[in-house]
């Protein structure tokens, strides 16, 4: 009997979305997605209340929201420690190093043929595993987290950048040859711009990796702040609403981070077919 309202909401939402999805316009698409998200939240809240799920197992969205509002100061200092100092610093250093390496080996096909397979291989490995080692080397503070992030983002960006620099058409390179363009000119005017969509692909996929690296590294040792530290201690005290509040922060930070990089990409690679406004 108690399942009835849950099922009713579910069926109502399905019906609404099925009807809305027929219109298939921008507005209804957004509405359908939002209704789906809201439905999940409502069902979650209802299920927790109706079945009296203990907060230790799954807190209700309202409890998470309350915890979020009550702990903004802690959440903010954790955000600064983990995301800004750890993830962002590491991501910037790693990306810079990867781009510089890609350009440095650009003139050596031999090194590229050697580094690319290794880079591809390393990109598939469980690199977070080096976190304990780097925490030993660089101490408990954010520097060790940034170091983990550097290692995690380096190879995916390197592989994308090298592929991007090689992505020009033979005709474009021939054209450069007919103008007797020196190496610098063809790198700067042709191959770097052409590599941008690839580079941004690498930058986008590594935003999530950067957050993961920074948070997971804190499980191996951290000062008494940081999102990973908070998650592991709050779990220990069974303060699950706070854990979920941290997860919410991580989700928002991850989406924002990705969104900002995607926005910059849109500005830089406005010319790429995937970014152009759709024409009839």
């Amino acid at each position: 009997m108690s399942a009835l309202p849950v099922i009713a909401v579910w069926i109502g939402a399905i019906g609404l979305n099925t009807w809305l999805s027929r219109f298939d316009s921008r507005a209804t698409r957004l509405a359908v997605a939002l209704i789906f998200g809201a439905t999940i939240l409502i069902l979650w809240e209802m299920a927790v209340r109706i079945y009296a799920v203990p907060p230790v197992i799954l807190p209700a969205p309202s409890q998470i929201g309350a915890s979020f509002a009550a702990n903004t100061a802690i959440l903010w200092s954790d955000f600064v420690q983990t995301i800004v100092k750890g993830a962002l610093t590491g991501w910037l250093i790693g990306a810079g190093a990867a781009i510089a390496t890609a350009i440095a080996i650009d003139r050596s096909p031999f090194l590229q043929r050697g580094l690319l397979p290794i880079g591809n291989f390393v990109a598939a490995l469980p690199i977070v595993g080096i976190a304990p080692i780097l925490v030993m080397w660089f101490g408990f503070d954010w520097q060790s987290k940034a170091a983990v992030v550097v290692v995690m983002v380096f190879f995916p960006i390197l592989v994308n950048m090298v592929a991007g620099l090689a992505a020009t058409e033979p005709m474009q390179r021939d054209l450069m040859a007919t103008w007797a363009a020196p190496y610098g000119a063809s790198l700067w005017k042709l191959r770097l711009p052409a590599a941008m969509p690839f580079l941004f692909n690498g930058l986008k996929i590594t935003t999530t990796l950067a957050l993961i690296g920074a948070i997971v590294a804190e499980f191996f040792g951290s000062p008494t702040k940081g999102m990973g530290f908070r998650i592991s201690t709050a779990v220990g005290r069974l303060d699950l609403p706070l854990v979920w509040a941290e997860i919410l922060v991580a989700a928002i930070a991850g989406s924002l981070f990705y969104g900002i990089v995607a926005l910059i990409e849109k500005k830089v690679t406005f010319w790429h077919p995937s970014q152009r406004p759709q024409r009839g």
Partner: peptide, 20 residues
Amino acid sequence: QSVMPWAVASQTVPILAIAP
């Protein structure tokens, strides 16, 4: 239209970090 936007957006969330 319901699931895909969320599935794509969820890729940007560091899910792995909450595994423990």
